[in-house]
Simulated scan of single mutants.
Amino acid sequence: MKLANRVAVVTGAGGGIGRATAFSLARRGSHLALADIDGPAVERVAEEARRLGVRATHHLLDVADRAAVHAFPGLVDGAHGRIDLLINNAGVALGGSFEQLALEDFDWLMEINFHGVVRMTRAFLPHLRLRDEARIVNVSSIYGIISPPGQSAYSASKFAVRGFSNALRHELEGTTVGVSVVHPGGVATAIARNARAPRDAPRDEIERGRAIAQRLLRMAPERAGEIIVRGIERRQARILVGGDARFVAMLERLSPIHYRKLLKKATGR
């Protein structure tokens, strides 16, 4: 897919993978409609992207807000004249076992991580269908391939993104709209530090879990952004980001039930 002079919508663009993906697109000449719940952060990203010679607009958007998402395609179309790429990257994290989590927290995470993807896709798909070539890119996770303990809510949301993306890809076969699902491994973003924790969990347990998670986040976001955009250029249906994601995907294919035992042997933990 040629990305020069395309218009890409990126959610969660204020930092991390979204920010890095936006810059990778801008270096290829894509114009950007950048959205995030953090207005000042996404405004700074848009300013930096414009220095790369592309048109970039910034938008304050909560993907859990149905009315705002419904109105968003009109704003983007008005600012850019067309929409070629939708990158559903916005997401949050929630640690803790299922029994520890409040139902309200579970619902909060699903509203953003899964229903936000569905809403954005529904809102933008009619616009994407008008293009000669278009693509929907949904960011899942390595935890959309495996399901570790303590990640019941997050893993459920990312498996949902994976299943939705795969079914949508089959439904759109023969059209000009392709679908990619992205599975990042340990990318060094703030998602672990910002993760919501069970309300009644001991503080030391929460901090210990965050520290462990943070140590696993090693890949620079800039590297992740490049891998994602190269996958878009190649029209990849599945984009694995990082050696850990590729390893886990292979392990899960070999042993879809007992991969956790093999993972413990392979890593020593």
Rank of each mutant, 00 (worst) to 15 (best):
M1D: 01
K2N: 15
A4S: 13
N5L: 02
N5Y: 02
R6Y: 08
A8T: 02
G12E: 01
G14Q: 07
G14C: 12
G14V: 11
G18S: 06
R19F: 07
S24R: 10
L25H: 13
L25V: 15
A26N: 05
A26T: 04
R28T: 00
G29M: 04
G29H: 04
L32Q: 06
L32S: 07
L34T: 08
L34A: 09
I37Q: 01
P40Q: 02
E43Q: 12
R44A: 15
V45S: 05
R55S: 12
A56M: 10
T57I: 00
H58N: 04
D62W: 04
V63K: 02
A64C: 03
A64F: 01
D65N: 05
R66Y: 00
P73L: 07
G74M: 04
D77C: 00
G78T: 09
H80G: 13
N88V: 03
N89A: 05
N89G: 02
A90Y: 04
A90E: 00
A93V: 09
A93T: 06
L103V: 13
D105A: 09
L109G: 10
L109F: 14
E111T: 06
E111C: 03
E111G: 04
I112A: 06
H115E: 06
V117R: 01
V118A: 15
R119P: 14
H127G: 01
L128N: 03
L130G: 03
R131Y: 02
R131M: 12
E133N: 04
A134D: 01
A134P: 08
R135Y: 02
I136Q: 00
V137Y: 11
S140N: 05
Y143T: 14
P149R: 15
S155G: 13
S157T: 14
F159L: 10
F159G: 09
F159M: 09
V161L: 14
R162S: 13
R162L: 13
G163L: 09
S165C: 05
S165V: 05
N166Y: 05
A167P: 05
A167S: 15
R169I: 11
R169H: 10
H170F: 05
E171L: 11
T176Y: 00
V179H: 01
H183C: 07
G185Q: 10
G186C: 09
A188H: 08
I191A: 00
A197S: 08
A201Q: 13
R203H: 11
I206A: 08
I206E: 04
E207I: 06
E207A: 08
E207S: 06
R208Y: 00
G209E: 02
G209C: 02
R210C: 00
I212E: 12
A213T: 04
L216V: 06
L216C: 01
L216W: 00
L217H: 12
A220C: 02
R223A: 15
R223E: 14
G225H: 05
G225A: 10
I227D: 00
I228N: 04
R230P: 02
I232R: 09
E233Q: 11
R234V: 07
R238Q: 07
L240F: 10
V241P: 12
V241I: 10
G243D: 12
G243W: 12
F247K: 13
V248R: 06
V248H: 07
A249Q: 11
S255E: 14
Y259L: 14
K261D: 07
L263Y: 15
K265A: 03
